[in-house]
């Protein structure tokens, strides 16, 4: 298993021994020269752009290049912007609806497709649930545009229902993932034991299965929520006039003169994302 000694690469001139060179101390087959340097560079490269973006969102000036002092000006401006408020509320509403419906559906599907023998149609159900993951978003977006455009013309109905349906569909596989993972680590005999102790199917689910899979469900819900909040491609193609979400609003802004307002909104989204991911990590890594 993993060693506790610190992996210090002792690449200094090793004494020319004859037989197999077993270097005395700190020698680890786990360290490869240069890899750590590249890795540190990678982490720097991963986070530097984000940190710059966040920093400039606090810039007092209009410029995106010259630092003119700390200010929350762009946050106030974004918060006061009616279009931003509108889009934010719509984004949250959409994510809430889509994530909730997707999680319920994914929970049921996960119960159906895990911990079982091969039953007729299992592979098909599994492929269908994961289908949104496998098709490029732009393809799904275009397909939805075609179909929903026809329905919109036909019914004259242009509510949020289209966006909610589209988001729910691609959220299902994401919600499904952690729930399935949770179920697969669960001890099957616990439910057998509950049935043995006179619990009906429903009571077994409510008293034993549900409490035990709960962390997976919450993780799935959060994941679906984040995925829905982040989506821009499908939303861009499915939305009707006046149905901007935060990502599509930002995408629209990028075509015009860019102000640090976009940075401010980005920073808020980033923070929300980091918090949710951190919570997600906690939920899925803690084993009980």
């Amino acid at each position: 298993m993993a060693e506790t000694t610190t992996p210090t690469p002792t690449e200094t001139a090793a004494p020319a021994l004859t037989a197999p060179r077993r270097e005395p101390r700190g020698y680890s087959v786990r360290s490869l020269p240069g890899f750590a340097v590249i890795a540190i560079f990678t982490f720097f490269a991963l986070y530097a752009p984000i940190l710059i973006l966040v920093t400039y969102s606090f810039n007092a000036g209009t410029s995106l290049a010259i630092w003119e002092g700390f200010s929350l000006r762009w946050y106030y401006q974004a918060a006061a912007n009616e279009a931003v408020q509108d889009a934010a509320i719509r984004s949250l509403y959409l994510a809430f609806c889509a994530a909730t419906i997707a999680t319920v559906a994914a929970t049921m599907a996960a119960l159906a497709t895990t911990r079982t023998r091969r039953f007729p149609g299992k592979t098909m159900i599994y492929a269908l649930i994961n289908q949104p993951l496998m098709i490029p978003e732009i393809v799904t977006a275009v397909a939805l545009l075609i179909v929903f455009a026809a329905i919109k013309v036909w019914t004259g109905h242009t509510s949020m229902i289209y966006l909610i349906a589209a988001h729910t569909a691609f959220c299902v596989p994401f919600a499904y993932l952690p729930i399935r993972a949770r179920l697969e680590t669960m001890d099957n005999t616990l439910e057998t034991a509950a049935q043995d102790l006179y619990a009906s199917r429903w009571l077994t689910f409510r008293r034993v299965t549900l409490p035990l899979m709960w962390p997976g469900i919450v993780a799935g819900l959060m994941l679906a929520f984040v995925i829905s909040l982040d989506d821009v491609v499908i939303t861009e193609f499915v939305k009707s006039a006046g149905q901007e979400t935060i990502p599509t609003y930002m995408l629209g802004q990028l075509r015009r003169v860019v102000t640090p307002e976009v940075n401010a909104i980005s920073t808020v989204i980033l923070m929300a994302g980091v918090i949710l991911v951190a919570l997600f990590f906690r939920l899925t890594s803690r084993r009980r």
Binding site: T189, T192, A199
Partner: peptide, 20 residues
């Protein structure tokens, strides 16, 4: 009869105690 309707109880090999 399903197991929940049989007046028979089991002590499981791994005990299967409810962890929650």
């Amino acid at each position: 009869l399903p197991p929940n309707q049989r007046p028979i109880n089991t002590v499981f090999q791994n005990y299967a105690l409810f962890p929650h």
